[in-house]
Amino acid sequence: MLNWLWFGLLALGIAFGGLQGDFAGVSAAALEAAADSVVWIMEMTGLLCLWLGMLKIAEASGLMQKIARLFSPAVAFLFPDVPRQHPAFTSMLMNMAANFLGLGNAATPFGLKAMEQLQSLNPHPDRASRPMITFLAVNTSGITLIPTLVISLRTAAGSAAPTEIIGAAVFATGCGTAFALIFDAILRKSKYGRS
């Protein structure tokens, strides 16, 4: 599926660009995106190193396990396949907390760590496990309390009330996340969820 999706995006873009007679624009975009992704990963590397370093300390000192023990009951019902007190809970919780506070860039390292820990529980390493899908359902629906990026954009654009959209954004993201969790729970129990 992924093969066709990726090819489809590429082919659609190239075909459409060709129809418009804008091959130059398309090829510039392809090369630019390839170069940009490396610049972006360089920035990301710094963040990954910083937070994975911190997580290593938290892991070795037992803080990860402690936080998992304290807070996992709050989210454990979403992840019936993950053993209680598993350190993956801490990474997932830190990822969600960072997203909640609008710290998107700090959220990624915790999220990737969580994936690594969930993968260690996955009986079929090439297939997404059910807890992974639930975790990413929460993650991609972008639950947040403070959309920091948008607030700074609005401030820069000269808004009289940059924060007035927070309530509406929290409502929309809440609806999306709730839907994602319900839809995920239905699919998890359907024939698609059988592992």
Partner: peptide
């Protein structure tokens, strides 16, 4: 990042 190739229903949910 973990080498998962089959997303199953993750894309549909997202």
């Amino acid at each position: 990042s973990v080498g998962v190739k089959k997303y199953r229903y993750a894309l549909a949910v997202g």
